[in-house]
Design a protein around this nucleic acid. Structure first.
Lengths: 174, 174
DNA sequence: CGGTATCCCATTTGATACTG
DNA sequence: CAGTATCAAATGGGATACCG
């Protein structure tokens, strides 16, 4: 399979990854949440090549995550749509994981401090069950695959096993 | 800047993205949370080339997200470390965003149903403030950059503006 | 089964220049 | 400011071979 085909799979992770799944795009999303809106600012703060930025912004607008908004006669800026703003939990989760696990020895301060306006405290974000409000962890959650997802995974596995080399190996054992 | 240098920045998002920031790696992490542990199973369920899988697994083990565990005399399997397991909020956020926004017209069922064992209900995960328990959204949170982050961003911007072409453009306006 | 190594072509990246 | 154009270099990815 090609990287570009990942977005076409049944899995929600795969589909999301098909839109956001590269480093530059995630940096762009970070910038959007920091308030960056202009082409040159994205260039300046991410350090990426113009061609790449253009391609990524097109992908994000095509996906409906970002929209081009006219802000003067002929100047556009890029803003998150509601769909894009809904990526907030994703970017916060990523940020907090980075804070917890990638901090350098001599760093005592998180690069980005998130303050919750409502209670005035620095945020530790938790992922909780909407239903009962308890914190979620892998052990407390059971994942059930839909019929469609299971079918697709089984098919991938079968195709993998049926590859010429694998098949030949099986035969050679007789 | 090169994509490979992103992980060296001050920003937590950039550092995390330096480890996880490509489509294949995120699919591998998905598989790990689904219980996949063996090399060939990763190949089968992701459809990626062996060379790429080897490179990604090495990066993940180097980063301490995954560890190789001997499960027979000479067979290794790949498991999430505590650092890796802590990626759960990231992968769940991604999954749920995909469920909400990338579902096809004729799909009525989420590909992956997450059931919270404690309360027995399908999960809708919320990101909440640890302090007051309220749901977090971009508008309710204020992001403050650390001195180090601000310095790095300013430097990037300056370097960008100082690039030969930009400088020349400024001069030409005289 | 569980990988690593190699060859090879297609695509992408990234630095820089150029344009409206 | 907001992009396109160009081009050399790197990476991707597919097939297959090979080893414990």
């Amino acid at each position: 399979m090609k990287e570009s085909e990942i977005g076409g799979l049944t899995c929600s992770v795969a589909r999301t990854v098909g839109i956001l799944g590269d480093a530059w795009t995630l940096l762009i999303v970070r910038e959007l949440f920091l308030g960056t809106r202009r082409y040159d600012d994205f260039l300046a703060y991410t350090g990426m090549a113009p061609k790449l930025l253009a391609a990524r912004l097109r992908r994000l607008t095509d996906a409906g995550v970002v929209q081009k908004v006219l802000y003067t006669e002929k100047r556009y800026e890029y803003r998150l749509t509601p769909k894009g703003r809904d990526l907030y939990p994703v970017i916060v989760s990523i940020t907090q994981w980075g804070d917890r696990w990638t901090k350098a020895e001599d760093e005592h301060e998180a690069p980005l401090k998130l303050t919750h306006k409502l209670c005035g405290h620095t945020i530790g974000a938790n992922l909780v069950c909407v239903c009962c409000g308890e914190k979620l962890d892998p052990r407390g959650v059971e994942a059930t695959q839909s019929a469609a997802l299971r079918a697709e995974r089984d098919k991938m596995r079968e195709e993998f096993m049926a590859a010429p080399i694998r098949a030949k190996q099986k035969v050679s054992h007789k």
